[in-house]
């Protein structure tokens, strides 16, 4: 038996929307600790990893040690778009061999003593679970900046080039691109905004390096403005995937690992 409820359906919708940018379907792994979702995109360039801990939800109950539900994200997103922002979202699942396996999605809106209810059932599909996991890494470089700023730069660069070059230096980040017709060059410097800390840019670059990334992936990561107005990018070097993370309360969040372009 699984049941979890959330008073902000918009946030869960944003998470699913962000995942569906890269992944068509993935396993939702419910345990007593919470929900985990992880998958590689079909090109094996980006890996999405989402954690929504038990305490992140307003109510959370999972009786099974581990429940693996294969979900089509496009369909789930359609369902979640039907949920009013002021509703209570409830996901539930009952283990029943006799019936088609489905995830129930319910939206409830308080109407005085009564409740308006909209209910959906999402048919589940079998997806082979991942047999691999992300290795533990010692990140040597870290940068934190407003998500909106990353979004703006990636959106601008996407107008000119499919590839963006990021040069991380001790005291600056240069983001650039070039095409046959033009070049673009952005410089981002660390600074502290004493009146609004969320505008600050922080860098801790121990080993400067340069990496090229596919622009549309970075742009899609930066769409997570609703998840966190700050993005943290962790790195080691050009050969190791970079991690972009957007944290939420209660140890929850969404993070991506992206492979860079290689020159050899």
């Amino acid at each position: 038996m699984l049941e979890c409820k959330l008073q902000e359906p918009k946030v869960f919708r944003s998470v699913v929307e962000a995942m569906s940018e890269h992944i068509k379907e993935c396993n939702f792994e419910f345990t007593r600790e919470g929900l985990k979702m992880q998958a590689l995109d079909s090109s094996h360039i980006a890996f999405t990893f989402v954690t929504l801990s038990a305490t992140w939800w307003n109510e959370y109950r999972c009786d099974d040690e581990a429940l693996l539900l294969g979900v089509n994200l496009e369909t789930l997103l359609k369902i979640l778009k039907c949920g009013p922002d002021n509703s209570l979202l409830a996901l539930s699942y009952e283990n029943d061999d006799d019936e088609v396996s489905e995830l129930k999605v319910k939206f409830e809106v308080d109407r005085g003593e009564k409740k308006d209810v909209a209910e959906f059932a999402l048919k589940l599909t079998h997806i082979d679970p991942m047999e691999e996991e992300v290795p533990e890494l010692t990140w040597t470089n870290e940068l934190e900046m407003p998500t909106q700023e990353l979004f703006r730069i990636a959106r601008d660069i996407s107008l000119f080039s499919e590839i963006m070059v990021l040069e991380f230096d001790k005291d600056k980040l240069r983001i650039s691109c070039s095409s046959k017709e033009s070049t673009a060059d952005y410089l981002v410097h660390p600074f502290e905004d004493s009146t609004n800390a969320s505008n600050s840019v922080r860098m801790n670059i121990e080993a400067p390096f340069k990496v090229s990334l596919t622009t549309h992936y970075v742009l899609s990561f930066a769409k997570n403005k609703n998840i966190n107005e700050r993005v943290v990018i962790k790195m080691i070097d050009a050969e190791t995937p970079l991690m972009f993370s957007f944290s939420m309360k209660e140890g929850s969040g969404i993070c991506y690992y992206i492979a860079g372009r290689l020159t050899d």
């Binding site: 590689l40 360039i45 996991e133 992300v134 290795p135 596919t214 050969e239 690992y257 372009r261 290689l262």
Partner: peptide
């Protein structure tokens, strides 16, 4: 600009 890397060799077995 090089070629796009993949994540295949990045993961470790559980």
């Amino acid at each position: 600009q090089g070629y796009q890397g993949r994540l295949d060799g990045f993961f470790k077995k559980k």
